[in-house]
Amino acid sequence: MSPLVLLVKTGIYLLMALSLLAAVGVVTFRNIFHSALALAGTLLGVAGIYLALRADFLAGVQILLYVGAVVTLILFAIMLTHRLGDPTIPQANKQSGPALAGLLILAALLGSLFLKTNWPVSEAALTPVTVRVLAKALLGEFVFPFEVVSIVLLAALIGAIVIARKD
């Protein structure tokens, strides 16, 4: 194995570890503002994983749409609503113990299943997906789901305005 490949591999595993660390921060930080910033970190890490899997268009979409739009939206909502920084308000309910135990069991079970399964590798999947191929698929073979999602997006846009405006 060449040193470059080793370096890239180490980088990817480091990226995974940092993303998981930021995700733990997202669910444990007391201040919800810090959670939102940690969410941006996790999303950037996931975008890096996409790049490692050669889904470069999706990495771009992830950064533009999630880090650019959704996190900004969440930060606006936090600033419009929150009683920020009051340490007397508990941020977690009383179910954290059972939830943690159950999810640890779930993660261990899934991990052992993943390691035991023999995953087949198909030759066709190894060809990289360019933006051109993706666009042809979205507007050709998958045009119906594409249009349905567009209508859902429009409905959500109008619905969000109607719900959030003052009467």
Binding site: A55, L58, V61, S122, A125, L138, P145, V149
Partner: peptide, 20 residues
Amino acid sequence: SRTTALNPVTGQVFAVIVIT
């Protein structure tokens, strides 16, 4: 979509829809 899929485009199309 990068390993076991018969067509590598399908997973990415699905991911775009999930992001939306």
